[in-house]
C-alpha cells in the first residue's frame, strides 16, 4: 500500500504534501519580509542591491523548483526553461551594457530635476516640443 502511494506520488512529480507547502510558503513570506525590512535599513545601494537580488533569487528558485515541481520533473523541462531564462538574462545584460551609459551621457546625467509641483507643465511642454528631448 505504501509502495502504491509512493508510486502515485512519483507519477505526479512531487513528493510534497500540504504540510510541506505551508512550510515553504512561510519561508518565502519571511524572505519577503526581510526584503521589505532591508529596503528601509539605510544600507548603501551596492550591498543593498546585492542582498535583495540574492534573496529574490532564493525565492525565484524555491518557487520554480518546489511549487512548479521542476526539481521532480523530467530534465528536459529544466533544460527548456533554463534556455529561455539564460537567453532572457543575456538580453537584459546586453541591453543595459549597450544603452545605460549612452543615454545618461545624452541627457547630462545627474542634473537636478525641478520640484514635483511643476512637473505637469514641464511634461506638457516636453510633449508639445519634442526637440527639447534631443
Amino acid at each position: 500500500m505504501a509502495s502504491d502511494a509512493h508510486t502515485a506520488e512519483k507519477a505526479h512529480g512531487s513528493p510534497y504534501g500540504p504540510r510541506e507547502y505551508i512550510i515553504i510558503t512561510l519561508i518565502l513570506a519571511v524572505v519577503t519580509a526581510v526584503e521589505f525590512a532591508l529596503s528601509y535599513s539605510g544600507l548603501a545601494t551596492l550591498p543593498l542591491a546585492t542582498l535583495l537580488i540574492l534573496l529574490s533569487a532564493v525565492k525565484f528558485i524555491a518557487v520554480v523548483a518546489l511549487f512548479m515541481h521542476l526539481r521532480f520533473e523530467s530534465r528536459i523541462f529544466t533544460q527548456m526553461f533554463l534556455f529561455g531564462f539564460i537567453l532572457g538574462a543575456a538580453i537584459l545584460i546586453a541591453l543595459i551594457a549597450l544603452f545605460w551609459t549612452a543615454t545618461s551621457d545624452a541627457i547630462g546625467g545627474d542634473e537636478e530635476l525641478p520640484p514635483l509641483e511643476h512637473h505637469h507643465e514641464e511634461s506638457r511642454e516636453l510633449f508639445l516640443d519634442p526637440e527639447r528631448l534631443v
Binding site: G84, L87, G88, A89, I91, I96
Partner: peptide, 13 residues
C-alpha cells in the same frame, strides 16, 4: 514560459 522569460527580460531591461 521560457519564451516569456525573453519578453519580461526585455521589459525589465
Amino acid at each position: 514560459l521560457a519564451s516569456e522569460c525573453l519578453f519580461f527580460g526585455s521589459l525589465i531591461s
